[in-house]
Amino acid sequence: MLSTLAAILERGSFAAAAQQVGCTPSAVSLQVKQLEVWFGQPLFDRSARIVKPTSLALEAGVVAREMIARLDALRARPAMAVAGRVRLGAIASVQSDALPQALRRLRDLHPALDIEVSPIVDSDPLLGALKAAQIDLAVLVRPQGGGSSRLIWQNLARQPYVMLVPAVVTAGTPQELLRRFDLIRYDPALTGGRLAAQYVRQAFPQARSIMDLRSIDAIVAMVSAGLGVSIVPQPRRALLRAHGVQELRLARNAPTRQIAMVRRNADAGSRNLDAVARALAEVYA
């Protein structure tokens, strides 16, 4: 609640604060009401269109920021050993590709480190969960603009987009194949899916999509069954071999996506997070 109060005072509105702390505006309003009950006084003047902080809110904000800074410093203090809990989030394709190998390395090297994997599997919600301190480290698609400078980013791998085609296909350019086959789209609601959709609109306006799927594994299975072709970030080789799906390279202007790790600035010196980051980087290397 104190973090939320500090965010409102810094950003100037409940809506802007909600984006910073990673929750809904209604949740911000509820936290403010709870703080006002605790203080026994209003913290904001709501009589005008724009809420204005009271003198109590401004004074409480100073104390809150000092307390938050001190608590963040305690959280960031390096431990002597790699032990304890790390809450890790990763997009679905990472969970089925690099993450199992990284977790095996961590279990062998740091048996006292407990990794809790979040059920969130999309980049945007993962970034929100990280900002809201619901997870400690995220592996996701880095925003095209580079991502917030208030976070620590570490690039892991750049993945090219490719066309997946059934094994029975013997020849053809991407344009020819999209005239012969329907398109199975990587869901445009996802960060990686939006890149694929933009490329298809520009390069293959004649493409006819028949379904949107969020799982690359599911897309590979559909292509293997001969239901269509797809344009996705390059899947792992073992998955393509298992389903007998072919990978076709696209033109030089085809998109790529950057897989990156991200953590909060307050966790810059964490031995636990450094250990997880090293394991992931070694797997991708």
Rank of each mutant, 00 (worst) to 15 (best):
P111T: 11
D72T: 09
Q34R: 15
F14R: 02
A157T: 02
A260Q: 04
S29E: 12
A18P: 04
A90F: 05
L178V: 10
A16G: 08
A285P: 05
Q41W: 05
Q154D: 06
L213C: 09
A171L: 06
L177D: 00
N265V: 08
P205K: 07
A17K: 00
L195N: 04
A27T: 15
E116T: 09
A6Y: 01
L88F: 04
G12W: 06
R77F: 12
L164N: 03
P42G: 10
Q95G: 04
A79M: 10
D217G: 07
G172F: 08
D124V: 13
A189Q: 11
V63C: 05
S123I: 06
I216K: 00
A57E: 01
L151S: 04
R77K: 15
Q246Y: 07
A15W: 03
L164R: 05
L71A: 14
S26L: 11
E59C: 05
V223D: 05
E116N: 08
Y161G: 07
R180T: 13
P125C: 11
V229W: 02
V200I: 15
L103R: 09
L126I: 07
V200G: 01
A6F: 03
R104W: 06
D72N: 14
N272T: 11
D212V: 04
T256S: 15
D182K: 14
A79P: 00
E10G: 00
L195W: 02
A98P: 01
A79D: 13
P166F: 13
V283E: 10
V86I: 11
L183W: 08
S96I: 10
L43Y: 01
I216W: 00
R201F: 08
V63S: 12
R208A: 13
T173E: 05
G22Y: 03
K33P: 01
R237N: 13
I152R: 07
M261N: 02
Q202D: 12
A279I: 06
P233T: 12
F44M: 09
A203M: 11
A69E: 15
I216R: 00
